[in-house]
Structures are given as C-alpha cells and as structure tokens.
C-alpha cells in the first residue's frame, strides 16, 4: 500500500492505496466523487476526464499514485458557491446533454480548452472535444454549449 496526498476540488485528502489503483477508482470508489464516469478500457471515450494540475487527463489511464502531491479538479468542482460555471449553463441552455453519462468528461475537457483558447472557432472546438465520445447528441449542441460558455467567459461571467 502507498500513501497518497492530493487536493481534489480544493479539498485535501490523504489515503492509502494499492499502487495499481487507477485514479478514476480512487475518485469514484474511495472519495465517492461519482460524477467522473467510466466508459471504456482503452482511453478512447473520455468519460473519465478530470483535470490534473489544470491539464485534462483520462483518469482511467492514470494511477492514483501518479496524482500524489497534485491538484485535481472534477465535475463536482465546477459549481462555486452555488453558482454554475458557464460551461454547465451552456450545456443546459443549448441542450448539450441527453443521458448525461459523457457530460462530466465533456465539460472538463471544454473547461481546460477554453482556458487555453478563449475565443475558439467551431473547428477548434470540434477537435478539442474529439477525445470525448458522445452517443446521444451528435455533438452539434455540445459545440453550441462550448460557444455559449466562451461568450459568457469573454463577458467576464465566472
């Protein structure tokens, strides 16, 4: 067993884990942050995307011990003090989700993308989310949701 210290959504945690434990299982089964989902075994679907030191990673392909001493953000960290992040608002307003299963990963990827690319083109958005699979929406409204968030963030909302 190994001791891991990490900060998730601003909260410090210290846990004993097996070296082989995947980060996604640490988040879901140990810390009970079940908003991060699992959709494949091969790092294709992106349902498990979280931010590790601000960078999106697929947490099914990261060991928990690799997050030792690091800062993580999950979907549960998007809302601050009861205020939704513009990404969350965008997904609601533009009907960017249906079953909701890919949504957390999709939002975390978009969150990091908009930090890097505050004023993206549609093509840039489509490429940015191409590591996240959605089976319900056909992506059209996800693109609109990201555009909505980009506009809100440009206005200085959140």
């Amino acid at each position: 067993m190994m001791r891991v210290q990490l900060t998730v959504n601003g909260e410090r945690h210290e846990v004993e884990v097996e070296p082989r434990l995947l980060l996604v299982h640490l988040l879901r089964d140990v810390l009970r942050l079940t908003g991060t989902h699992i959709g494949c075994d091969t790092t294709h679907c992106g349902a498990c995307t979280v931010l590790l030191e601000d960078r999106p990673v697929k947490s099914c392909t990261v060991f928990a011990v690799q997050a030792n001493g690091k800062r993580l953000m999950t979907v549960e960290g998007l809302e601050r003090n009861g205020t939704l992040h513009p990404i969350q608002e965008g997904f609601v307003q533009e009907h960017g989700l249906q079953c909701g299963y890919c949504t957390p990963g999709m939002m975390m990827t978009s969150y990091a993308f908009l930090k890097r690319t505050p004023n993206p083109s549609e093509d840039e958005i489509r490429h940015a989310i191409s590591g996240n699979l959605c089976r319900c929406t056909g992506y059209v409204n996800i693109v609109k949701a990201v555009q909505y968030a980009a506009a809100r963030l440009q206005e200085g909302g959140a």
Partner: peptide
C-alpha cells in the same frame, strides 16, 4: 422547456448503476 434532469447531470450528481455502493 429546458430539461429538468439536467440539474443533476451537469453537477455530476446523477446516479448510474456503477455509482451505487
């Protein structure tokens, strides 16, 4: 009408089978 179910999904608060422990 905007969807009622979205409130939980965008917060990561849905309950799918694997979330049940």
């Amino acid at each position: 009408v905007k969807r009622k179910e979205d409130a939980r999904f965008i917060r990561g608060k849905g309950t799918y089978v694997d979330d049940i422990q």
